[in-house]
Write a protein that binds this DNA or RNA. Structure first.
Lengths: 203, 203
DNA sequence: ACAGTTGTGTACCGATCGGTACGGAACAGG
DNA sequence: CCTGTTCCGTACCGATCGGTACACAACTGT
């Protein structure tokens, strides 16, 4: 991925990152097994050979797509952790979530939910990798909420585990609901409702 | 599906309903495209020929599986509508939901979410049928909440549309979260948190 | 100019996909 | 018994699956 390295041999005729973005979109819309190599390479604008040379195989391509998605489209999740209180973290995260799953020009919902929730047994490492990423997100939210308890803006009686799981659950629900056709405005109002369950910082 | 009809010809050597249940499980675990006919018929305990004779083709089999799932495993959703207040409806629905997505001996999550969220373009009628079913569920919840407004147990300022979408969203989130490995107890506590956002009936 | 290296395009591989042809097995009615 | 009907099992179909062999094109270094 280093572009500074002096290149020897025939130069690549495509941009690996934009090709990966196209692949993300196909996996997102059609799921892992629903996305054939023909579909993928057609969308990426490259031949099968180039794809295998550049990315390995289908599973590797998916792993790279997942990685790129997490680091580029899910930054809002980690940005939200910087909010001053647990309430603000949850609010910022969920509102950003509602926006993300209804971003114009992108498939509705969440790449990880649509492409990695289930898979045939021979591709179980796909869904396992996605489950791991999801769990990591919940862990991050949980440690943030635990800090909120020591910070004092969250009461100890408001179980941080339950709250983290709740916020993640709503976020995942938003993703599913977006696929069913809910609009961005609809989901923002859903988040407004959902936030009533998150305790406000103590005065 | 009538068993009363006098039968002529060689009798069927398997029970169509239990075969359908096995098919549901395979679709549930592996998704529509991830479930091959070999997987399906092996789990159903019948040959390909018998499957085609009895159910049509793969898409027909899925449609029948979806129908059976909706009428057999999602009855709790419609039962919940009978609760006396909007709050009770939401509570009963979500708690039943948490149980349903963590039923021992069945795959975690929800058949419709796992098998019908996305599909290859040539199978788009699959995800379309599932989306339709989901929308019907939300409609039912919405009309129930509207009645709650006229009944007086829900304030008109508590938008029934938003509330119905919220409850559906949480339910769908529970399904996704169950796949990630959340336990039944975990999800029940998530529902307890979620219910704080649903207004209690006015005194 | 030439060798060495790497990407591209075509054409193809075996395996598996969903789906079916066909012959025999198991029943009901005569 | 025989005929008609329906189901079962094997063996197979063309199409598509993920993946690759190989010849050639495009670059760098000498």
């Amino acid at each position: 991925m280093e572009t500074s390295k002096r290149h020897v041999g025939r130069p690549r005729a495509f941009d690996a990152d934009v090709a990966l973005d196209r692949a993300i979109e196909v996996f997102w819309n059609q799921g892992y097994e629903g996305a054939s190599l023909t579909d993928l390479t057609a969308a990426m604008g490259i031949t099968r050979t180039s794809m295998y040379a550049a990315f390995g195989n289908k599973a590797d391509l998916y792993a790279l797509a997942l990685d790129r998605y997490l680091h580029r489209d899910l930054t809002y999740a980690y940005d939200a952790l910087a909010a001053p209180t647990a309430h603000a973290v949850a609010s910022r995260y969920l509102h950003a979530c509602a926006d993300a799953v209804t971003t114009p020009g992108r498939p509705p919902g969440c790449f990880t939910v649509q492409s990695g929730l289930v898979s045939a047994p021979e591709n179980s490492d796909i869904s396992a990798a996605v489950a791991r990423a999801r769990r990591a997100g919940e862990e991050a939210l949980l440690t943030r909420f635990r800090r909120a308890v020591t910070d004092g803006d969250l009461s100890a009686s408001d179980n941080p585990d339950d709250l983290a799981r709740y916020v993640m659950t709503v976020g995942e629900g938003l993703a599913v609901h977006a696929v069913a056709g809910a609009s961005r405005a609809d989901l923002q109002r859903v988040v407004d409702v959902a936030m009533k369950a998150v305790p406000l910082p103590r005065a």
